[in-house]
Design a protein around this nucleic acid. Structure first.
Length: 422
RNA sequence: GGAGGGAUGGCCGAGUGGACUAUGGCGACGGUCUUGAAAACCGUUGUGGGGGCAACCUCACCGGGGGUUCGAAUCCCUCUCCCUCCGCCA
């Protein structure tokens, strides 16, 4: 959510930004509702003041005609207040709904572009492996090795589900455990095990709702919302709190399964395990002060890159242009691993600085110093990393001519010393 | 799932229809005293909205929502969460 004062004072600046973002938002509606709200408030608050003052006087008066007259008068005032209360809450609700539709503003360093074709490759690291045979895609490698079972996944749950089996399941578990240990032991993150279903307000706080409702699984009976990323519970960990400045920055990391309906990518990436309705992810998250959140973003991207480097897999870092920024981010980098079998760069991480956009929605503040007024924190999120795609990259980069897969050095302690899958 | 008890400010805790700004204590911050500190004493201490150049004025908030009343932390309805006991259970 943006600051209403900002929208009120600089609507043209916001409209310019919306053009760069290649999107739209009900700015004029917000301005009109804000105007109406303030007019109504002035009126109803004056009436309340009158009632407060007079009621207090009534309390101190002797019983009698004069007192009865005032009571009758205040009954009238009360009815006028009641008549205004409805419109006030209607306008406030409409204003809130409209405010939730407005995307975040891009940071000044974000390149302008219309869509993902204008994203900028910032750097490419690691040597692409030269194969003396034709590298296979994971959807061929997996079934042959008996570590991915597509048919039975579909039998159980339908399209976009698969089963990992034997050393395939073990390899994913090893990746998760190793990544968590890396973030916790060497990068300073605190491990969190969060709920995987949350209340509606958490989804609003993390900016998943109301805009992306069609993409979220929802249990109607208990009103539980299935998280599409651990970013959701991590954002809400400090919802409605005022943090001390000396606590910041806070670093959290959480493993979670992620559930996505994928309504917006029907028919895309249907082959393999690249895009499923359920996948695992290790997520990094930071609560930072307004001063250093951009330094923290660069550090977070490096934390994600570190996972790639240690796995020995070539990757590149891509900066999103304005047209591909998404709803909540002010600045965003993707980290993409090279997958030689399917022949594409796979997005394994997405690192964003949301500035105070989520913090306003979730009401997360900090006090810069004792006695100072609370300010909204800056929130950052980044995958560290998404599992199925990392699994793809490991399988395809470490495949051998005989169809076996060598386990990367760093994972072997997590695989009980196993060196190859064959 | 059944029965009972609760939810008040950063924390503890009083408050069953009207008084000044919701007692009091703890904590925190400022001050006096002191070479310095502690103790003692004095003072300050929530969040959000509206108006105003400003000092300031004003509205709302006692778990959430609704109701009664001239007036609600207080009375009524409802929901959520927590605690105790019973039942069930990985």
């Amino acid at each position: 959510m943006l600051d209403l004062n900002f929208i009120r004072e600089k609507p043209d600046q916001l409209k310019e930004a919306l053009i760069k973002l290649n999107t739209d938002a009900p700015i004029d509606e917000i301005l009109a509702l804000d105007e109406e709200r303030r007019t109504l408030l002035t009126e109803v608050e004056a009436l309340r003041h009158q009632r407060n003052v007079t009621s207090e006087k009534i309390g101190r008066m002797e019983k009698g005609e004069e007192r009865q007259a005032l009571i009758a008068e205040m009954r009238q005032v009360g009815e006028r207040i009641k008549a205004l209360d409805g419109p006030v809450s209607d306008v406030e609700e409409l204003l809130r709904e409209a405010m939730l539709q407005v995307p975040n503003m891009p940071h000044e360093t974000v390149p302008v572009g219309k869509d993902d074709s204008e994203n900028v490759v910032v750097r490419t690291e690691g040597e692409l492996r030269q194969f003396d045979f034709e590298p296979l895609p994971h959807w061929d490698l997996g079934p042959v090795l008996g570590i991915i079972d597509f048919e039975r996944g579909v039998k159980l749950s339908g399209t976009r589900f698969y089963v990992l089996k034997g050393l395939g399941a073990r390899l994913q578990r090893a990746l998760i455990a190793w990544m968590l240990d890396l973030h916790v032991n060497e990068q300073g993150y605190t491990e969190i095990y969060p709920p995987f279903v949350v209340k509606r307000e958490c989804m609003v706080g993390a900016a998943q709702l109301p805009k992306f409702e069609a993409n979220i699984y929802h249990d109607v009976e208990d009103d539980f919302w299935f998280i599409g990323t651990a970013e959701v519970p991590l954002t809400n960990l400090h919802r409605d709190e005022i943090l001390d400045a000396d606590q910041l920055p806070l670093y959290y990391v959480a493993y979670s399964p992620c559930f996505r309906r994928e309504k917006f990518s029907a028919g895309k990436d249907t082959r393999g395990i690249k895009r499923g309705h359920q996948f695992d992810k290790v997520e990094m998250y930071k609560f930072a002060t307004t001063e250093n959140s951009y330094e923290e973003l660069e550090k977070m991207v490096d934390n994600a890159e570190d996972v790639c480097r240690r796995l020995g897999i070539p990757y590149r870092v891509v900066q999103m242009c304005t047209g591909d920024l998404g709803f909540a981010a002010a600045k965003k980098y993707d980290v993409e691993m090279w997958a030689p079998g399917c022949g594409e760069w796979l997005e394994v991480s997405s690192c964003s600085n949301c500035e105070d956009f989520q913090a306003r929605r979730a009401n997360i503040r900090y006090r810069p110093e004792t006695g100072a007024k609370p300010e909204f924190v800056h929130t950052l999120n980044g995958s560290g990393l998404a599992l199925p795609r990392t699994l793809i990259a490991v399988m395809e980069n470490y495949q051998q001519a005989d169809g076996s897969i060598v386990i990367p050095e760093v994972l072997r302690p997590y695989m009980g010393g196993i060196e190859t899958i064959s």
